[in-house]
């Protein structure tokens, strides 16, 4: 056994007669930020769902029991206030401690004064932060994010990327992040896996130091990486 927190060997997923994922093997270190990119239908969302245990898969699969998840849509419960959403996964401990955790996360997502609002009363970026806070609050070991920023405009998206990096470095979580945006994947990740037709077509280690600044997106290194990944996707 190595120091991998997530360890997958020969993972396959079949849907009806079609094989969606073919013999995928993958190790993820504790605290690593890994992005899955790929064209539509490449299997990136299926891989995330299989890793999170949402869909049946064959092969060897070692994933910690306690995971968090953030989706693009339907991530938060529209019938709960912001604070109730964050508190939903807190089942242990005293009420005061739970309240303290909720307060901490409201602060983390910069919505301290909006705890009693409903998601419908917030902007898209704010709602998505609530979803992330709800996933973080019970202190999972791994967080799975499926195109969490897919519905956001470019400006909000870039702010949210920076914010996510700050949270990630403060909370020391392992993150598996699905996106179709190559810039986003490179900017955020330690490692980018390119999926194509249900297989890992390429793997790129991202060399940029942390903390990262938006400016790296204009460096020649970044653009070279982007081109390589782009070619692997198409």
């Amino acid at each position: 056994m190595n120091d991998a927190q997530i360890s997958v060997k020969n993972l396959s997923v079949a849907y009806r007669d079609a094989v969606v994922l073919k013999q995928i093997s993958l190790d993820v270190r504790r605290g690593e930020f890994v992005s899955l990119v790929g064209p539509s239908g490449s299997g990136k969302t299926t891989l995330l769902n299989a890793l999170a245990g949402f869909i049946p898969a064959s092969g060897e699969l070692h994933v910690p029991g306690k995971v968090g998840v953030v989706f693009q849509d339907y991530s938060v419960f529209p019938w709960m206030t912001v604070a109730q959403n964050i508190a939903f996964g807190l089942e242990n401990g005293k009420k005061e401690d739970q309240d303290e955790i909720v307060r901490h996360h409201l602060k983390l997502i910069q919505l301290e004064d909006k705890g009693d609002r409903y998601p419908a009363q917030l902007s898209g970026g704010q709602v998505q932060r609530v979803g992330i806070a709800r996933a973080l609050a019970p202190e999972p070991e791994v967080i799975f994010m499926d195109e969490p920023y897919g519905a956001l405009d470019r400006h909000t998206r870039e702010k949210m990327q920076q914010w996510l990096l700050n949270v990630w470095s403060a909370e020391h979580k392992t993150i598996i992040f699905v996106t179709h945006d190559i810039d986003e994947a490179i900017f955020l990740s330690d490692r980018v896996l390119v999926l194509n037709s249900g297989k890992v077509a390429a793997e790129h280690h991202i060399p940029f130091d942390r903390p990262r600044d938006e400016d790296i997106k204009f460096s020649s290194e970044f653009i070279r990486l982007k081109k390589e990944i782009y070619d692997r996707m198409n």
Partner: peptide, 12 residues
Amino acid sequence: PQRLLWSAATLT
């Protein structure tokens, strides 16, 4: 929605 149920399953 399935994703809502999946989210819930990770939380409780």
